[in-house]
Write a protein that binds this DNA or RNA. Structure first.
Lengths: 218, 218
DNA sequence: TGTCAACTGTACTGTTGGTACTGCATCGGC
DNA sequence: GCCGATGCAGTACCAACAGTACAGTTGACA
């Protein structure tokens, strides 16, 4: 690990391969994405491809790494912007979830797919390295959202007994399940609606119920 | 649709191919499952395979059909058994969800994977026929659970404004997302815990909050 | 006895992932 | 001004795999 070894070769071509691969993989999966197809899209030779990636698994690893980094950035950005809008941990989290739903809703052709899920359903094809990368990404997201939930729980004691790790995981589960749902029934809005449902759940878990004078919820 | 045309050829061999294919596909995906591997497992020739399935896509279709039928049976069974235990629609649904979580928890190696999700992430590989089959399966599940939620909502007016179609879809989303979660972090119990979280959400949506004399939730 | 379902065997095609080289232009450093 | 590394292109080849074609075999049943 030198000083700038990480991503020391932007080189254009490598990035172009990754771009072509990402679009293809998310739309039809790793198996259906051929190397020939990628080199044709980029305009290089097979040798050129294998110069950058020793095999398809190396491509998968690079693809997943880049995808996770981008997702991390999006989450960081959303959470930060939400924090700027409210100092209350619960309100901030609810704002962030709404922003996330809006991001999903604004994708013109629906969410292109989750690389993590794509990798998950191709397990045996990759080395343990790729699977470990996937696992760490999910555990990282859990940690990130769990921190938020902890801060919320301090101020708003949960009204039901839920494990906060599970509640953090649920966002990822709802998102991945929502992507599958959206794609399968061809309804791009199903995903953002599922995220909003998760939001409603979080609200119900931590918010006090709005109770009218009659004792009935409003 | 004749009288007994459906599944008119149990023939043993065909079923054996489907069994071998189901295990292989769920563990490593369609792409990584070779025909040679399947015929070796069953002990037939390549010609034998192509006698039963004209190509790999036909295998996928048959596999998906069988999978959906089995899932339908499981859901029917769980809902029926739950109905026997309680006449109240909410309680019955909550019982069914707990049963479902227990079924998932009792699978020795965790849930093997969802064929619907597997097909979803291989979209372009199959004809529209297979994708339509997938879509119909999900819409069918939505309808089934939506009916339950309607009956619940009649007796227990929802405390928050949620779309019942979305709430029905959420079970499928949480299940598929939970499977991905479980497989990726190697925790077979993550899936049943996610189902129980969904159950908690349903309970919160429809149940009146338990409020103590002080007005604080218990 | 003939027919049909359920196969086996053989031979072939085309695609794909992957290996193993050799060649070649370009560019920075000495 | 040459030296080596980077970043490719070109060629040749192999094995695994999906799929096609078609001829032959076996057992059950009418």
């Amino acid at each position: 690990m030198g000083i700038v070894t990480r991503d020391a070769k932007p080189s254009g071509t490598r990035t172009q391969i990754l771009d072509a691969a990402e679009a293809a993989v998310l739309s039809k999966g790793f198996g259906a994405t051929s190397i020939d197809e990628l080199i044709a899209a980029v305009g290089i030779s097979r040798s050129g491809f294998f110069y950058h990636f020793k095999d398809k698994s190396a491509l998968a690893k690079a693809l997943l790494q880049r995808y996770i980094e981008e997702d991390d950035k999006i989450f960081d950005d959303v959470l930060r912007r939400a924090d700027e809008l409210s100092e209350d941990p619960l309100h901030s989290y609810l704002i962030a979830l709404k922003m996330l739903a809006e991001i999903f809703a604004d994708l013109p052709n629906g969410h292109p797919g989750c690389m993590v899920a794509s990798v998950c359903y191709h397990e045996q094809l990759f080395q343990r390295e790729v699977r470990d990368l996937n696992e760490q990404a999910i555990l990282n997201w859990r940690r990130r959202f769990r921190e938020r939930l902890d801060r919320i729980a301090e101020r708003y004691p949960p009204r039901v007994d839920v494990d906060l790790d599970d509640l953090a995981d649920m966002l990822m589960a709802v998102a991945d399940g929502g992507i599958i749902l959206s794609r399968t029934i061809h309804d791009p809005m199903a995903l953002p609606r599922q995220v909003m449902l998760y939001r409603e759940f979080v609200r119900l878990v931590f918010s006090e119920p709005v109770v009218t004078a009659t004792g009935r919820p409003a």
